[in-house]
């Protein structure tokens, strides 16, 4: 199908690198891997640029491929039988990065412990601000399934936050005057 939109690859990288990198980082929990995934996603976009019909289509395509490549990377890691966090610490000797917001950082850590489909749905909901229908289109899944992943993921994350983020609960209780 003919389309008038003329994509500028460099501009697309400028506009969407933060989105693609953040999705990959939060899906995998590994900064190095997230950079590799982001590179691969943009190089794949370059190969498919003639099929992209609009700026919105580019954004949709990038989200979809970023989630899909991150899930592939996680599966490859599972096949290799290495625990993600142990590997990062042992092989890269990485220290935990200073967080802008410690609560935010800890919520990210808790998100990494959720099952992959729930993590993807929550990320698209709260990072990308997508509706369940848009998430369903991005993940190529039924809307009911996405809603279920969102509900279960949110419930699980809330429960984990209540256990692991005691100070968060205390702060909230203090703020409420309990």
């Amino acid at each position: 199908m003919a389309h008038d939109w003329k994509p500028d690859f460099e501009q697309l990288v400028d506009e969407h690198q933060s989105m693609v990198f953040s999705l990959a980082l939060r899906m995998t929990g590994d900064r190095g891997l997230a950079e590799e995934i982001a590179q691969d996603v943009f190089l794949e976009l370059d190969r498919h640029l003639d099929k992209i019909e609009s700026a919105a289509h580019a954004c949709f395509w990038l989200r979809r491929v970023a989630i899909s490549r991150s899930a592939d990377a996680l599966r490859r890691r599972k096949v290799r039988g290495l625990d993600l966090w142990v590997e990062i610490k042992e092989h890269h000797g990485l220290q935990p990065e200073p967080r802008i917001s410690s609560l935010g950082g800890r919520l990210e850590d808790l998100l990494a412990t959720l099952p992959e489909p729930q993590r993807a749905a929550l990320l698209l909901r709260y990072q990308e601000d997508l509706t369940p229908e848009e998430i369903a289109a991005t993940l190529d899944a039924p809307v009911a399934t996405v809603k279920s992943h969102l509900q279960r993921g949110l419930k699980l994350l809330r429960a984990k936050a209540a256990v692991h983020l005691k100070e968060y609960v205390r702060e909230k209780e203090y703020a409420r005057g309990v």
Partner: peptide, 30 residues
């Protein structure tokens, strides 16, 4: 409130400054 916290916690992170250059370099070499 919890969902608002999540939205704040999951704001997009800036990509590493070198990422764009690496992508463009790989694209040229490819």
């Amino acid at each position: 409130e919890f969902e608002q916290e999540l939205r704040q916690a999951f704001a997009r992170q800036p990509a590493p400054p070198s990422l764009k250059n690496r992508i463009l370099r790989n694209r040229r070499s490819r």
